[in-house]
Design a protein around this nucleic acid. Structure first.
Lengths: 218, 218
DNA sequence: CCTTCGTAGATCCTATAGGATCTTTCCTGT
DNA sequence: ACAGGAAAGATCCTATAGGATCTACGAAGG
């Protein structure tokens, strides 16, 4: 008998979740100064758990700390850093796709195919874009999870946080193409075909990088 | 004129360094409970910076937190987790070796060859072993640095922290072989030969895993 | 007009105190 | 002898207060 491992949480963790969401949603925009006391007042907690949350966020690179001068939200990636991130994605996620094709459970293959086939319904443009981004992240996480490597999945998740910071500047079009690529990837993994899974992921990421890079042209 | 960017530090950072070193040196052994108040008294600081340091360490996986029950030093890796870590090392460090061979500066190639050729001098067995481990980590970091990918280097550094936790249980012998492998790797990178660099790293890591895995046989 | 210096304000960093929770130990009952 | 429960101790979590530092604005001098 396995119980769902009841979740006890602390204020620090709650603040962390809230702050992380705020940064990812651009409620706190890149470059903004983060005032500890003001945040504590807004969230109606003391500064201590806020400091704890910020320390964790800094370790993940979402905020920067300047000693005796306060925290700021990490600035957006430069073109070079963005390319570096995609080099890492290619390295990590191609391996994840390969391992997923080799080691995923039948349930995982099924879920992956189902989720990759999902499409996002109407709503206003902003909400629709947010939903689509969330779905994209979810598909990639399913692959990472199916790779059966906890360390690999964690690394990928960490990268995606930085990717998410840029989503506002991604082009709204071409989402249908993304969806097609996801389905090819899911099919390859479902078919136990590592080579095809890896190359599908590679194609998908290379195309995604090209799609996103236009945002860096002024 | 570029000044060395004077380093201001906070108590929290100092505590972090001290604590991280204590964990890596097994002054705080895996599984040990970490008493916040006691630590604050020993280090002669208040609990707040200690909490901040622990939050960062938890984010790196060096300590674990159980809400309302305190922190503990992360336990040693299981055999499966250890294998997973080496799978990640193979993925990350082989790519690092390849990129280093392609992109390293002349200075980096020179330093790498020099450091890979270094040997550790006498001293008592414990100190000697510690020095050798440090040298090994240094060589691998030089490769990561030469890869010219900040994200890749950071990921590798993160992995090596966990590897370091196990060093006490590594075999003392066969260090000469390790040194030879490092020199082969350095030579390949120095020669601008990506294929040979990657395979040299792969061989090295596969052999290293085999050497270390004996520690898991009881 | 530009640069430099000094002061005021705001912010961060650290320390201490009180309430809530968990762990351990001891005792009682079966 | 063992299982179950209760109370004491220790520990963690949160809140508040005070000292040190940085930033920004304004004034004086070149």
């Amino acid at each position: 008998m396995t119980l769902p491992r009841l979740k006890r949480s602390t204020l620090g963790d709650d603040v962390y979740d809230s702050l992380r969401a705020a940064v990812l949603e651009h409620t706190l925009a890149p470059g903004d100064r983060v005032n500890i006391d003001a945040l504590a007042r807004d969230l109606e907690v003391s500064p201590t758990p806020v400091r704890e949350a910020l320390a964790r966020l800094e370790s993940e690179g979402l905020v920067r700390k300047r000693p005796l001068a306060g925290y700021t939200v990490s600035p957006l990636l430069t073109r070079a850093e963005f390319n570096d991130m995609f080099d890492m994605r290619l390295l990590l996620e191609c391996a994840a796709a390969r391992w997923a094709a080799e080691r995923a459970t039948p349930e995982q293959r099924g879920t992956l195919v189902t989720e990759a086939a999902r499409t996002v319904e109407g709503g206003d443009e902003h909400a629709w874009h947010a939903a689509f981004t969330a779905l994209d992240a979810h598909v990639h996480d399913l692959v990472a999870q199916a790779s059966a490597s906890p360390l690999l999945r964690e690394s990928i998740t960490r990268l995606h946080a930085h990717l998410h910071l840029h989503r506002r500047y991604f082009p709204y079009a071409q989402t249908a193409v993304t969806n097609d690529e996801h389905q090819l990837l899911a099919a390859a993994i479902s078919d136990h075909d590592p080579d095809r899974a890896e190359s599908a992921m590679r194609e998908h990421l290379i195309h995604a990088r090209a799609r996103h890079l236009v945002a860096f042209d002024e």
